[in-house]
């Protein structure tokens, strides 16, 4: 039956709006956005502050729902899912990396990475094994027992990335992943994301303010006032 020439895009936003508040205080964060992203792409989202980048990421990550329009994830309309349904979608297919790392304090790197597996009901020994492997993939082997306060900013972000990929997601969402890091550490994190995209085929969508960070991506989408102002493919950064 799969006779169609093209599989559906991994992500499809059709006419998506997001309005906060009501009446006088109404703020339109997104206005009729159309966006399609295919499996395996590496997309950078840019735009001035308040242009709707985080709002888009939250909708893509099923943390938020559009006020209007449709969101199809791998062809499945997300609008028809309830909160637990969206959570299940997120935890099975999507990894999230935040600007502020958002690791649990006083909890070791290994335990932080294990967390998504805990909620999926993975057994303890298999969990520790998978988490240790994810930490190895982000170059943090040997740091399993360090708590966030014992790690540098770059290392904490690596733990956060390990936590996002430990479930082998189709999609990795990163909202300003280098926002709190210096230039050199930012470069290392970008190399890691690039490698995950290139070697494991994970679709990466990343928000950034910095053009040289965005330059790592092969496609750049620019937002302005809740609309897409520009959407272009760009040559892969020579390294």
């Amino acid at each position: 039956m799969d006779a169609g020439p093209l599989p559906p895009p991994l992500i499809a936003l059709h006419n998506v709006s997001r309005v906060y508040g009501r009446g006088e205080a109404e703020v339109t964060a997104l206005a009729r956005v159309d966006l399609e992203i295919r499996q395996g792409e590496f997309v950078a989202i840019m735009g001035p502050s308040g242009s709707g980048k985080s709002t888009t990421m939250n909708i893509l990550g099923c943390l938020d729902t559009p006020s209007g329009g449709d969101y199809l994830f791998d062809g499945v309309p997300v609008g028809g899912l309830d909160r637990d349904g969206r959570t299940l979608l997120r935890r099975n297919f999507i990894g999230f990396v935040f600007q502020g790392f958002n690791l649990l304090p006083r909890t070791t790197a290994l335990e932080n990475v294990e967390l998504p597996l805990v909620y999926r009901g993975v057994k303890a020994d298999r969990r520790a094994d998978l988490a240790a492997r994810a930490l190895d993939r982000v170059g943090l082997a040997g740091r399993e027992d360090h708590t966030p306060s014992e790690l540098s900013g770059g290392q904490q972000q690596r733990v956060a990335i390990a936590r996002a990929i430990v479930t082998d997601p189709l999609l990795l969402l990163a909202d300003e992943p280098t926002g709190n890091l210096d230039t050199r550490t930012s470069g290392e994190i970008m190399d890691l994301l690039t490698a995950l995209n290139r070697d494991q085929g994970i679709t990466v969508i990343m928000v950034t303010h910095e053009p040289d960070i965005a330059a790592h991506a092969r496609r750049m989408v620019r937002f302005k006032d809740g609309r897409i102002e520009d959407d272009r493919r760009q040559p892969v950064l020579a390294r």
């Binding site: 959570t87 935890r91 967390l115 909620y119």
Partner: peptide, 11 residues
């Protein structure tokens, strides 16, 4: 709690 919910904890 926000972290737990965001990384896939059900209600």
């Amino acid at each position: 709690i926000g972290i737990r919910l965001a990384i896939g904890a059900l209600e």
